[in-house]
Simulated assay, not measured.
Amino acid sequence: MIEWIKKRREVKKILQQLDSCAGEFTFPMLDNGYVYLIDSRMTLFSSKNYWGITIEVIGFSTRGGGHDGINNAVHIYGNFPGCRPGLQNENFFYFTDDINGQKAFDEEYQFYLNPHAKSVLIDGIEYELVHQKEQYLKAEISIDGDYIGIQDYLRLIWPQIVEKPFLSTEKLLQITHRDLNEKIRLEEWWHPDLVEDELPSKTETFIKIAHAFVNDDFNRLSKLSESTNTNWRNWPEGGTL
């Protein structure tokens, strides 16, 4: 009975940390009004005494614009030494660039593709820029106005990128704690809608994750991919402010 109470308290602590970050807007909001969601990934780590979660959110921020707006925002949670739960400024990682001095994006607003540019670097690899609107329509990506939005291009090209620009396990350990061990990586899951006041502690995904840490049993988490909402199409309000 005492062991059961102890585990229950540990589960509560984990969920309280996530809820606290949600209240402080440092937990991923997939329909953030200033960020067009492109992709996301969650990695769970643990050791004998510590637990850790990283949630990487790749998106295009209208506040940054251009290459400065395309980033991987790595949110970190845990109880390991030095952990600062939430999203820190140093944990934004950028991965696109121009090629041969030709601007990939419009210079005035930094929201659209440069119609005269041919390609862009994504994580060091050259990709052709797609200017034909019919290609987007085929992919069921709507285009507003006369120009191709940066987020529209990224969403179109994303399935062609074999090695997505998420951080390696080694890099994640560098920004968390070396004593941690990777337990499971989730490409999809059911995420709380913070705008609708949903909290991690009321979401099956994070309840199960908290129990997995406390019981050191991550086998059942593979089933979290059976019911998911992390695809960008499920968050149409993102980036629209």
Rank of each mutant, 00 (worst) to 15 (best):
T205F: 03
A139H: 02
W189Q: 01
K12L: 10
N49C: 09
H116G: 00
E196S: 08
M1Q: 15
H75P: 00
G65R: 04
Y50M: 04
T96C: 14
G82Q: 12
E140Q: 06
F27H: 03
P165K: 04
T96S: 11
I2R: 13
V130R: 12
C21L: 15
Y153D: 01
K138R: 04
N91S: 11
Y153P: 02
K138W: 07
I38M: 04
K223N: 13
N215S: 11
K7G: 10
E182W: 01
P28Y: 04
K6L: 07
L113P: 11
F93H: 13
A210L: 09
I161H: 00
K202Y: 13
F95D: 09
F25Y: 13
T230P: 00
N181I: 03
S222W: 11
P115T: 00
T26G: 01
H116Q: 15
I99W: 01
L15I: 00
G78V: 04
L167R: 07
I70H: 01
F218V: 01
N91V: 10
Q135D: 10
E56Q: 08
P159I: 00
I161C: 00
M1L: 10
L121S: 08
D146A: 13
E134I: 06
A210W: 06
V214K: 09
Y112M: 06
I125G: 08
S119C: 06
I157E: 01
W51Y: 15
R185P: 01
N215E: 06
P115Q: 02
H177M: 11
Y109M: 11
N72Q: 15
G239E: 02
H177W: 03
L173D: 03
V120R: 00
P236E: 03
N229M: 06
V11A: 04
V195G: 09
Q110G: 15
I53C: 02
S47D: 09
K183E: 14
L87Q: 14
L172M: 02
L44V: 10
T205D: 04
V57S: 02
N71W: 05
L44F: 14
F92Q: 11
Y136W: 13
S20A: 08
G52W: 09
F111A: 09
G101N: 07
D146C: 03
M42V: 07
P159A: 01
I207P: 10
L37F: 01
E198F: 14
F93G: 12
S227M: 15
Q17H: 07
Y36R: 15
Q102T: 06
H67K: 12
S61T: 08
L180A: 06
L44S: 04
A210V: 11
I55Y: 09
T43Q: 14
E107T: 08
L113F: 02
T203R: 02
Y136D: 04
I53M: 05
N72H: 02
G33H: 06
Q174F: 15
S225F: 02
P192R: 07
L221Q: 05
N231M: 15
P192L: 05
P165M: 13
Y136E: 04
V120K: 03
Y50F: 14
G239Q: 05
P165R: 14
S201L: 08
E126I: 11
E170C: 08
T230N: 05
Q102R: 14
L224E: 01
Q88N: 10
Q88A: 12
I55W: 07
T43V: 14
I2D: 11
G86H: 07
Y94T: 10
Q17Y: 14
F95I: 05
Y127D: 12
W235R: 03
F45E: 01
